[in-house]
């Protein structure tokens, strides 16, 4: 068995690089965190004017290769712009191993709304409470254990600018990917009227084979008139297009699965 570049060797088993998506509200220090992870090993489109295009980068942790994807900042999963649509599409795709939801510790309430919407769709989530240094200087303390218990996913406090909490965050990412930590994300409850509507839509979606969070997430999108969510599910081509080289990650994934079969 030959080892291709960019693949991982862990315990003699070759596996693809893990894909970590960074999502969050604008102005949460998401890009700073992303930079802290990847350093200069990143690839952007033509212009990194904040997060105009999607930036990708690589990092290694405990001998495993990761591809980090910096998603455009968004306030909710109900998009208002092409960029927010891309972020939403990505969350609904199966192109990642874990989503790190970056939140602003000084403005947690607003940021949690997005985290909750993401938790509705996927359970591969780590919540990162960033800007913890800023919160401290304002006299705020965030009890991440309590937050973690309430959300049902690992929660780590970080200060991306001075690197505080980054090892813990990497550890949490790894533990969610490997399944060492089982997540039981908090699911949003709606009014009985909405729940009824969602059940009705979920009934229509039966033949698509969607289950769990995806099914519920897609139902919510459709209820809000976001019909293009179906395109995303039909094929992930649009996302792959947007991401260009991330396709490489998919290729590796495919190759690895072929390898696994032939072995």
């Amino acid at each position: 068995m030959t080892e291709t570049a960019g693949t991982n060797t862990a315990g003699g088993v070759t596996c693809r690089p893990r894909i970590v998506a960074f999502a969050g509200n604008p102005n949460t220090g998401k890009s700073t965190l992303f930079n802290a992870f990847t350093g200069l090993r990143q690839h952007t489109g033509n212009w990194p004017g904040k997060t105009v295009t999607v930036t990708r980068g690589r990092f290694r942790f405990r001998g495993v290769n990761y591809i980090a994807v910096d998603l455009p900042g968004t306030y909710s999963l109900l998009p208002n712009s092409p960029e927010e649509r891309l972020a939403k599409d990505f969350i609904f795709s199966d192109l990642y191993d874990v989503v790190v939801v970056v939140t602003d510790a000084t403005c947690l309430e607003r940021n949690l709304a997005l985290a909750l919407q993401i938790l509705e769709v996927t359970d591969k989530v780590v919540v990162c409470v960033n800007l913890i240094d800023e919160a401290r200087s304002k006299g705020l303390r965030v009890n991440t254990e309590a937050l973690s218990r309430m959300l049902g996913v690992p929660t780590v406090a970080t200060s991306a600018r001075d690197g505080e909490g980054l090892p813990a965050l990497m550890d949490a990412i790894e533990s969610v990917i490997t399944g060492r930590t089982a997540t039981r994300p908090l699911k949003l409850k709606y009014t009985s009227e909405i729940e009824g509507q969602l059940r009705r839509i979920a009934g229509w979606l039966g033949p698509t084979g969607l289950v769990d969070g995806k099914l519920r997430g897609v139902s919510v999108q459709l209820l809000c008139g976001e019909c293009d969510v179906l395109d995303v599910l039909r094929s992930s081509n649009r996302i792959v297009e947007c991401l260009g080289k991330l396709d490489e990650g998919r290729r590796i994934r495919r190759e690895c699965s072929v390898n696994a079969v032939s072995r």
Binding site: L108, R141, K189
Partner: peptide
């Protein structure tokens, strides 16, 4: 609904 849930959680974890 999302915001109301966030409203419930945030104050209980921020001291």
């Amino acid at each position: 609904s999302a915001y109301e849930t966030a409203e419930r959680i945030a104050p209980s974890v921020v001291e």
